[in-house]
Write a protein that binds this DNA or RNA. Structure first.
Length: 590
RNA sequence: GCCCCUGUAGCUCAACGGACAGAGCACCUGCCUUCUAAGCAGUAGGUUGUGGGUUCGAAUCCCGCCAGGGGCGCCA
């Protein structure tokens, strides 16, 4: 927001230090940590420490303060900077209040839903996420990867990148065979009505249970697997038909979650090309074929790299019976993506943390094989969602909270709350409010957590609509809207934001948070952390709640009123932008 | 045995190597003829697991240890 001033100041500081033989360290600017005034600050500790190492006999803190004072004397008249102070080794530059306020608020109102977005990088980034298994349930365990991946797509796109949203359903493997077996044996001819994914999950759970109960079914299962493997037309047809059911179920779930994809890759498509790649790796001596000795095809990565330690370990890339495993398919998939999108700058895999070694191995093997694309690939790991008592969600164990149930519960709970809080809502409004609030309450706690931290799911927390949660932020947005509606004017038509010199502390803090939003978007994208956005969205909402309480808008004196109306309009925009990056709707009423 | 993640208020979590470590929940005390109280203000709560090291400065970086979780050739 004050780049021009910052550059001018840096130039002067550099010139001063050069004249006086001061070994200036790189200047790092940060916002002033004090409340009540705006500005930027830098310090001279590193510079003083550098001098000290060169033999200067003076305390670093003392010297830093000395330099700061001298530098301060050089900066008496920078336009836009109202005051400069040197304190405790820091150089603090205070912005002109009116100027800063005007720049922030006008910038938001000018850029609207693009405020906070970064300049186009021209980079194409693929983000693969969600990866549900067909023929299985979709439960809270899948929620995190889906929500996280979606938010990352939104954030990286807003930060200036072009995004390809990719999904990679697991549509083959033993779980599918179990399902088909259970269907043929106990549900033959049935078709799902509503709640497709729930029904698919039930058929799977029943099959898995029966097989566990009665080991004699194993033979039937193996026979079925063989028919599948030989592409028995009847089985393939059934597989395709039932897979379509799952995909339709997923489509409904993604629609309910407000998540979309640009491209689907299927596990089954990568099987053949994966096997061919493994053959190639064997021919080139990278992979070792132990099948003649009853073993599998493996890549002894550490050995190939001549490392004397267990780092990449050994990866199995093909089973001893010649069938493909996940690694086989991921080798092919990685290249497949670059064939489809040759200009990919990055290929990101949002997958849970347990597969870290797997991806390290896949990318390393590709690198060894000379595929430079591998260097553009990265795994963004996230921790699991567990149930209270550290119980891992498992479709087989029946320890499952189905997403359908969760969504339904959250929405109906939100509806009850909305009815209670605001009886004036129309039926349509009630519908959209309960959807927005229920879904937001579900997404926010997941996104407001470090990716690598475990989330323990419990109903009470998930459905708690108070405090640091999405509804609090949405409510702030609603309040902005109420004020604007009540005022009955379009802030865009009001004169430019002329704030008085003496702003209320609540106004100062609020404007401060707004000004930080663009930088936080960049940080969130660079670090793949939606948490950064979740935090600042809450901070803005909290600052607004304080402002709302302390600063009347509609009833204020005309000049104050106009300025505050523009501020409120700006807050509404930034809140909506931030929530949108999290995949959360900002309602106008609730 | 090797590798990765985590350890901060009673609980759940924040804090780009910098100025007094901050929120929410829970507890207690106030605030609705006002722009919706899904809110606000206030009280209280900490040797940042532990011992060293680097640095002018460490919750943050490095090493050891302790505790919890995860991963380590044919699961996905």
């Amino acid at each position: 927001m004050f780049e021009t001033e910052q550059n001018a100041i840096e130039t002067r500081i550099q010139a001063f230090c050069k004249e006086n033989d001061i070994p200036l360290a790189a200047l790092e600017w940060k916002p002033l940590p004090f409340s009540g005034e705006w500005g930027m600050s830098t310090s001279f500790f590193s510079t003083a420490a550098a001098e000290s190492r060169l033999g200067k006999k003076i305390g670093v803190a003392t010297r830093a303060q000395e330099i700061a004072s001298q530098v301060k004397a050089q900066l008496s008249d920078v336009p836009g900077i109202r005051r400069v102070e040197a304190v405790m080794g820091y150089l603090n530059l205070y912005y002109d209040t009116q100027e800063f306020t005007r720049r922030v608020v006008d910038s938001v109102l000018d850029k609207k839903d693009r405020f906070g977005s970064g300049p186009a990088t021209g980079q194409l980034v693929m983000i693969e996420f969600s990866q549900p298994n067909t023929h299985k349930a979709f439960h809270v365990g899948h929620l995190r990867g889906t929500i996280l991946g979606d938010a990352l797509c939104r954030i990286l796109e807003f930060a200036g990148n072009d995004i390809v949203r990719a999904n990679y359903p697991g549509d083959m493997g033993m779980h599918v065979i179990k399902w088909l077996w259970g269907y043929l044996k106990f549900h033959n001819g049935e078709e799902p009505a509503t709640d497709i994914t729930r029904w698919m999950g039930e058929v799977y759970a029943e099959a898995a249970h029966r097989i566990e109960q009665d080991p004699t079914f194993e033979a039937e299962l193996r026979a079925l697997y063989a028919r599948w493997d030989q592409r028995d037309p009847e089985i393939v047809a059934l597989w395709e038909r039932t897979r379509a059911w799952s995909m339709e179920g997923f489509r409904q779930i993604y629609a309910a979650l407000d998540v979309r994809f640009d491209v689907y890759y299927f596990n089954s498509q990568e099987e053949k090309p994966g096997k061919e790649m493994v053959e190639d790796l064997v021919r080139r001596g990278i992979a070792t074929d132990d099948r003649p000795n009853g073993g599998a095809v493996i890549v002894k990565i550490d050995e190939v790299l001549a490392l004397n330690k267990d780092q990449y370990r050994t990866a199995v890339v093909l089973r001893s019976d010649g069938t493909a495993l996940y690694a086989t398919e991921d080798l092919a998939l990685t290249l497949h993506k670059f064939r489809d999108y040759p200009h990919l700058a990055k290929s990101v895999y949002v997958v849970d943390v347990r597969q870290s070694l797997h991806f390290t191995q896949v990318f390393k093997i590709l690198e060894i094989a000379g595929y430079t694309q591998a260097q553009k690939c990265s795994h963004v790991p996230y921790e699991l969602v567990t149930l209270p008592g550290n119980v891992v969600v498992s479709s087989r164990e029946g320890t499952v909270v189905l997403l359908e149930d969760l969504l339904r519960e959250a929405t109906s709970r939100a509806r009850e709350e909305a009815k209670k809080k605001n009886p004036n809502l129309t039926a349509d409004q009630l519908d959209s409010v309960s959807k927005a609030v229920g879904l937001g309450a579900l997404k926010y706690p997941i996104l407001a957590r470090e990716n690598t931290k475990m989330v323990t799911f419990d109903w009470q927390t998930a459905l708690d609509f108070n405090g640091q949660a999405a509804p609090y932020i949405q409510y702030a947005h609603v309040r902005c809207n109420s004020i604007l509606k009540k005022a009955g004017v379009d802030p865009a038509n009001l004169p430019h934001s002329q704030f008085a010199n003496s702003l209320e502390p609540a106004e100062v803090e609020l404007i401060d948070w707004l000004s930080r939003f663009p930088a936080e978007v960049q940080r969130s994208a660079a670090e793949y952390k939606p948490l950064v956005i979740a935090s600042i969205a809450y901070d803005i909402a909290r600052a607004f709640a304080g402002f709302y309480d302390a600063c009347p808008v509609v009833q204020a004196a005309p000049d104050v009123r106009d300025a505050r109306l523009r501020l409120v309009a700006a807050v509404k925009i930034v809140l909506a932008n931030a929530l949108s990056l999290l995949g959360i709707t900002a309602p106008d009423v609730m």
